[in-house]
């Protein structure tokens, strides 16, 4: 399942933030997006995940192959870790959650209410959700936030296994997690410039 974006312009709150972004993500590959805060990494990822449509350009590849993990983990504090994962597995039409629990060392916590987890443990649970969906293209927004070094390694290992199985990942991240097979895409050159004032008068933007 490959993902291609051709010359897309993405907008936040109706205003273009990135323009002319093209990328190709082949099976077994990973791309890491870099760029300063506020350049539009989250907007680009949400667009590619299918939550919003690009202002211009097109995205190819089945939307059903992508799974998104954003800043919020979608965890219900009153459900246990196991129940949280089982719910998302069921939503994606699957039932086995043990592999995901193992990959992120969550078995000892499986029966604990998710509300009692630390921030890093919650994040691990949020990332384990990616595994239970069984979708090949991961779209990740700052996946390593609040993870300790050990957990970052855990995550990097999970990504490597995923890539080896023919999956792919597109992620925004500031830290280097030692993924040598990942390409880096610097978004700074794609920052949208304001349109000329003449065009501007024709519409609002």
């Amino acid at each position: 399942m490959s993902l291609q974006a051709y010359d897309i312009t993405v907008a936040r709150g109706g205003i273009a933030v990135l323009e002319g972004v093209s990328l190709t993500l082949k099976p077994g590959k990973a791309i890491v997006l870099r760029g300063p805060n506020g350049i539009g990494k989250t907007t680009l990822l949400r667009t590619i995940a299918g939550l919003q449509s690009p202002l211009r350009g097109r995205i190819e590849g089945a939307a059903e192959s992508r799974v998104y993990a954003g800043h919020a983990d979608g965890i219900k504090p009153t459900l246990t870790v196991g129940e949280n994962l089982a719910f998302w597995a069921a939503v994606f039409g699957r039932s086995n959650i043990s592999a995901a629990l193992t990959a992120f060392h969550l078995e000892p916590l499986a029966a604990r209410p998710a509300g009692a987890l630390s921030a890093g443990q919650k994040r691990r649970l949020g990332l384990a959700r990616l595994l239970v969906t069984g979708r090949p293209v991961w779209v990740l927004d700052e996946p390593t936030v609040s993870l300790d070094l050990q957990a970052v390694d855990m995550f990097a290992a999970a990504v490597r296994v995923h890539l080896a199985q023919g999956g792919s990942a597109l992620m925004a991240s500031h830290i280097d997690m030692g993924l040598d097979e990942a390409d880096v895409l610097d978004l700074a050159p794609y920052r949208a410039r304001a349109t000329a004032l003449h065009d501007f008068d024709e519409a609002f933007l």
Binding site: G13, G14, I15, T195
Partner: peptide, 14 residues
């Protein structure tokens, strides 16, 4: 008013 908001946003874009 809408255009003014758009102009302000455009200014922020630089």
């Amino acid at each position: 008013a809408r255009r003014m908001r758009a102009l302000l946003a455009r200014e922020r874009m630089g």
